[in-house]
C-alpha cells in the first residue's frame, strides 16, 4: 500500500460515505474516541495495512477510497474481539462487514484471493446446503494459482475429522439454494430500478 502523504481534509471528505456506513451497519461512527482497544485486541493488526482504530478514524474523516481499497477489511477474520472490548459499545465487526460489501459493490477489492474465497464459499453453500471444504479448498487453491497452498495441514484436519472427503447432503438443500436465488432476483430488480 502506498502511504498517505498529506490528506486534504475538505476536498477528500465524503459525508455520504459515513452516512452509508452508519446506515448499513447500524453503528454511529462518531461514538469512537480512538482509544485503540480494537487494534490492541485484534489478532491481525500485525498484517493489516491500517489497524482497526485507524479504519474507524478514516471513516470519521470520510476517506471512502482509502477505506474501501484497504487490505485490512479483507484480512478481518470477524472474530469480534474488537466488538467485545470496545468501551463505546460499537459493533466494529459489523462495520468491517459493511465495508467488505461496499468494497465489492464499488469494485475496489484489494485482495482478489480473499474475494474469490468468499464467492466460492457461498457457491459451495448454495450447492450443498453446507460448505464442502474438501472440494472448496483445492478449487480455491487452483484458481489462485497456488495448488499446494496449506497442503501440509491436510493430514491433520482429516485425522481430526475437521473436514470430510465427501459432501454431506443435508435436509433442506433446495430451500437454502432458493434463498440465494431470491437474493439474486432481488438484486437484479434493484439494479434495474437504479
Amino acid at each position: 500500500m502506498e502511504r498517505l502523504r498529506v490528506l486534504a481534509l475538505n476536498s477528500t471528505y465524503d459525508e455520504s460515505f459515513i452516512r452509508q456506513v452508519e446506515m448499513e451497519s447500524g453503528q454511529q461512527i462518531s461514538r469512537c474516541y480512538q482509544c485503540g482497544n480494537c487494534g490492541a485486541s485484534c489478532n491481525y493488526t500485525c498484517v493489516y495495512d491500517y489497524p482497526v482504530n485507524q479504519i474507524m478514524r478514516l471513516i470519521q474523516l470520510g476517506q471512502k477510497e482509502v477505506v474501501l481499497s484497504s487490505r485490512a477489511i479483507w484480512l478481518c477474520a470477524a472474530c469480534t474481539a474488537c466488538t467485545t472490548r470496545c468501551p463505546c459499545n460499537i459493533e466494529v465487526t459489523k462495520i468491517m462487514e459493511t465495508l467488505r460489501v461496499m468494497s465489492l459493490e464499488e469494485g475496489t477489492v484489494s485482495l482478489k484471493d480473499v474475494e474469490l474465497f468468499y464467492k466460492e464459499f457461498l457457491r459451495s453453500l448454495k450447492n450443498f446446503g453446507r460448505v464442502f471444504e474438501a472440494g472448496l479448498l483445492p478449487l480455491v487453491n487452483l484458481r489462485i494459482g497456488r495448488p499446494f497452498n496449506d497442503m501440509e495441514l491436510a493430514p491433520l484436519v482429516f485425522k481430526g475429522r475437521k473436514i470430510h472427503l465427501f459432501p454431506s447432503f443435508i435436509k433442506g438443500r433446495k430451500e437454502i439454494s432458493a434463498i440465494f436465488d431470491r437474493f439474486e432476483s432481488w438484486r437484479r430488480k434493484k439494479e434495474d430500478l437504479s
Binding site: 480512538q34 482509544c35 485503540g36 482497544n37 487494534g39 490492541a40 485486541s41 485484534c42 493488526t45 491500517y50 489497524p51 482504530n53 485507524q54 474481539a81 472490548r85 468501551p87
Partner: peptide, 24 residues
C-alpha cells in the same frame, strides 16, 4: 492507547495494547 488483554508468560504478565500514535 488502551490495553486489549493481559496474559501470563512464565511468572510475568504480558500486556497487549495499542500505540495509536504509531498505529502498531
Amino acid at each position: 492507547g488502551r490495553v486489549g488483554k493481559i496474559y501470563p508468560r512464565g511468572d510475568r504478565l504480558v500486556v497487549q495494547g495499542m500505540d495509536t500514535l504509531l498505529g502498531i
